[in-house]
């Protein structure tokens, strides 16, 4: 059960969020040049060496992860033809709803995530209102909340399944 794709799905999302954060960091470090005069109209972006490596490395890793993710998803769908999942479905993939016990675990984990957001969102909003937070850090904060959401969900589901195994 712990190796079920739906149980591990939050880890995938966490990895994608980290990669998105690295892409964000790289793009933030870029310098842009906009020249508009009688002779020319030019727009250019330059990345320092570290940011350049991070950007291309992160994009490469993102595509690699998407490929592996797709393969895992199709493997899951082959093994569970009655519980097929799609990358584009509206209901979160991580929901375990095979039966009422699994729905109970999902509810417990979702409640923890909801509690986290009830406190984290107003707190972050206050920080953003009180301080002049650069755009990079604002987006980074949102990514951090998203990352935490999946961490809380994953830890709770794992804890429930582990307790049951003992």
């Amino acid at each position: 059960m712990k190796k079920d794709f739906r149980v591990q799905y939050p880890l995938w999302q966490m990895a994608f969020i980290v990669l998105l954060g690295l892409i964000l960091f790289s793009v933030d470090g870029a310098t842009t040049e906009f020249i508009h005069n009688e002779d020319e109209l030019r727009f250019g972006t330059q990345f320092p060496p570290l940011e350049s490596v991070l950007l291309y490395g992160s994009i490469f890793l993102t595509f690699l992860l998407i490929t592996i993710f797709s393969l895992k998803l199709s493997k899951h769908n082959k093994q569970h033809p009655d519980q097929k999942l799609s990358m584009w479905q509206i209901r979160p993939i991580e929901y375990l709803e095979q039966d009422e016990g699994m729905t109970y675990i999902t509810r417990r984990a979702s409640q923890k995530v909801y509690t986290f957001f009830v406190w984290a969102l107003p707190f972050m909003a206050v920080i953003y209102i009180l301080f002049e937070v650069p755009r990079f850090w604002m987006i980074f904060g949102i990514l951090f909340l998203a990352w935490m959401q999946y961490l809380i969900y994953y830890v709770e589901v794992r804890r429930q399944l582990k307790e049951e195994d003992e």
């Binding site: 059960m1 095979q98 039966d99 009422e100 016990g101 699994m102 675990i105 049951e164 195994d165």
Partner: peptide, 10 residues
């Protein structure tokens, strides 16, 4: 008609 885990929870 339920999973092993659900029996464990009960």
């Amino acid at each position: 008609g339920v999973t092993r885990q659900t029996i464990g929870f009960i």
